[in-house]
């Protein structure tokens, strides 16, 4: 599997990652190499195997519907880059 520079730009956009234009070629090489490694998976026919998403065959535990959390806004917002009047702030979003 070989990627093109356009693929890198598209994925980088999906992942909201800024990538320098002059680094794109390196990413093309590195990611293509990784994908060739990954393509080894196709050596095996696994079509009849049920996918395993979690190593334990456990099922979800459920918690009681109770309020256990208290307001910790001040503590949480101390580490935020931009807050005002209790809001987190980002550059204006136009809808």
């Amino acid at each position: 599997m070989t990627l093109k520079s356009e693929d890198i730009r598209n994925i980088a956009h999906l992942a909201r990652l800024h990538i320098d234009e002059d680094a794109i070629d390196d990413y093309v090489d590195d990611l293509s190499n990784i994908l060739s490694l990954v393509d080894q998976m196709n050596q095996v026919d696994s079509s009849s195997v049920a996918p395993l998403s979690n190593p334990l065959d456990a099922t979800q535990r459920l918690r009681a519907d109770e309020v256990t959390e208290t307001n910790q806004r001040d503590k949480f917002q101390q580490i935020a880059p931009d807050v005002a009047d209790g809001f987190y702030r980002v550059p204006k979003v136009i809808e």
Binding site: E69, Q72, R73
Partner: peptide
């Protein structure tokens, strides 16, 4: 109409001051 959130123990009551009912789980810490 649960009293707490689907994945955390923060309250779901409407109309609280901004971010006072957002716990570490809700904030994606």
């Amino acid at each position: 109409a649960t009293v707490s959130k689907i994945f955390s123990g923060a309250s779901t009551a409407f109309g609280a001051d901004p971010n006072t009912q957002a716990c570490a789980v809700d904030l994606g810490m």
